[in-house]
Amino acid sequence: MTGMSPIVKTVTRWVSPFILAFGIYIALTGHLTPGGGFPGGVIVAGCFILITLAYGKERVEGIFDLKSASVTDSLASLSFLCMGLLGYVFGGGFLNNFIQSGFPGKAFELLSGGNMPIINIAIGFKVGGSLFVVFAYLALFRAIEEE
């Protein structure tokens, strides 16, 4: 698994930042426009999968290793749970939207919706991290089989 041709590598280098930015945008503005944490996270995972396919595993392992991806996955799940528990403490119910009831934001703006953007970001990290981990394991397994 040594990567693909120089054409693919160059195109990947130019395109991948835009894909990453688009995924983050989709996840951030999920409460205003179509999108949300789920598609945003999958797009981010797709960006990393593209880089892994184009450059091969040796190059990629140095940049983002599996351990940090799985730590991201676990931390994002935990932060989702923490938002729920904070709602229990401040709002009186598990996963209560305590920010919106305390400090309501202006509608149709980025900082609205209470804790929706925070949970959206957490879900984005969670989905992206876990999907990238699964793909990387499948790719590594195949690379070992081919040896």
Binding site: H31, F94, M116
Partner: peptide, 23 residues
């Protein structure tokens, strides 16, 4: 909830238990 996208309102506030189970 404060979000303009009603699907995400349901996903993250009204039925957030579902999303937690999905995670």
């Amino acid at each position: 909830v404060g979000g303009a996208n009603v699907v995400n309102d349901i996903l993250l506030d009204f039925r957030a238990y579902d999303t937690l189970g999905e995670a």
